[in-house]
Amino acid sequence: MHELAITEGVVDAVQQRLPDATVTCVRLEIGPLSGVAADSVRFCFDLVAEGTNLSGARLEISEPPARCRCHRCGTEFAPDGPFPMCRCGSMEVAVLCGDQLTITSVEVA
């Protein structure tokens, strides 16, 4: 359940950047290969935000699909799970996108 620590990281980072703002919405981008479960972050967010300037803020998470390139055959493909494997059977792949864990923007009142 590292998502609790991840969510605390989100709240801390926003507090640090915008200490005096009333934050009404936080937008995250969580890639399917980031190792973080978006649902668990949603579960933790309200609890972690309580008592901060993010209290009551809406959480919007976008989960853009991942893209990988196979080192063996050069094919670009969209992995269908958290464990990218090329159709040629190779697991030696470069992650082009999908491992990001980013606070993209926030909305302030």
């Binding site: 990281g9 980072a13 950047r17 980013t102 993209t104 909305e107």
Partner: peptide, 17 residues
């Protein structure tokens, strides 16, 4: 963005770590 406004951060969550 409506009554409030949007602040773009584009910050890695694990940046501090």
């Amino acid at each position: 963005g409506g009554s409030g406004h949007t602040v773009v951060l584009q910050q890695k969550v694990l940046a501090r770590n």
